[in-house]
Computed example of a mutant assay.
Amino acid sequence: MKVLAIGSIVKPVTPEQRQQIMPREVPATLQLYLDGKIEQYWYRQDAPGVVFLMDVDSVDDAKATVNALPLVADGFAQYQLMPIGPLAPLGMLIQGK
């Protein structure tokens, strides 16, 4: 299933904390991409944070995955999870449906 994970920074990260966390956060995120759990990723333009398009077994799987990331585990970030799928009403445009 596809899940849109919208990340937000909930506690400011000091430069010193960033130096400690990001060397763990970046490889962990990259590994999720290489494992196929993150299909696409973006940096938010409206607020600090990221957005992932995830391919996971369930929303619970997505939650466990993002909660294991260092920024979340250390209390600096959180994710809003939204299951998404095909635009079903488009089926009405197919003749005979």
Rank of each mutant, 00 (worst) to 15 (best):
Q19K: 14
Q17H: 02
D60F: 05
A64K: 13
L93R: 10
Y41T: 12
P23Y: 03
A5C: 09
L4G: 01
T29K: 03
M82W: 02
L32Q: 10
L53P: 03
M22G: 03
V26P: 04
P48N: 09
L87F: 10
G96T: 07
D55I: 01
L34M: 13
S58M: 08
D74F: 11
L93E: 08
Y41M: 15
P83Y: 07
M22D: 11
R18M: 09
Q31L: 03
L69C: 06
L4F: 02
D61Q: 08
V72P: 01
R18W: 06
P12G: 01
P15K: 10
K2D: 13
V56H: 14
W42E: 11
G91S: 05
I9S: 02
P48M: 08
Q95P: 13
L69D: 03
A68V: 06
Y79I: 04
V66N: 05
D60N: 15
Q19E: 15
S58E: 12
G7C: 14
V59L: 11
M82Q: 02
E39N: 12
F52I: 02
S8H: 15
D61T: 14
I6S: 03
A5W: 04
D57S: 15
Y41D: 09
P48E: 01
I6Q: 02
D55T: 14
L81H: 03
V10E: 00
V59T: 06
A73S: 14
L87N: 08
L71H: 06
I38F: 10
V59E: 15
G36H: 10
L90T: 03
L69W: 07
K11M: 08
V50D: 10
A68F: 10
Q78T: 13
R44E: 04
A77K: 12
P15Y: 09
R44N: 13
A64I: 00
L81C: 03
K11Q: 14
L81M: 05
L30T: 05
I38C: 08
Q17T: 04
K2F: 09
A5D: 05
A77G: 02
A73C: 12
L90P: 01
G85N: 07
V56F: 12
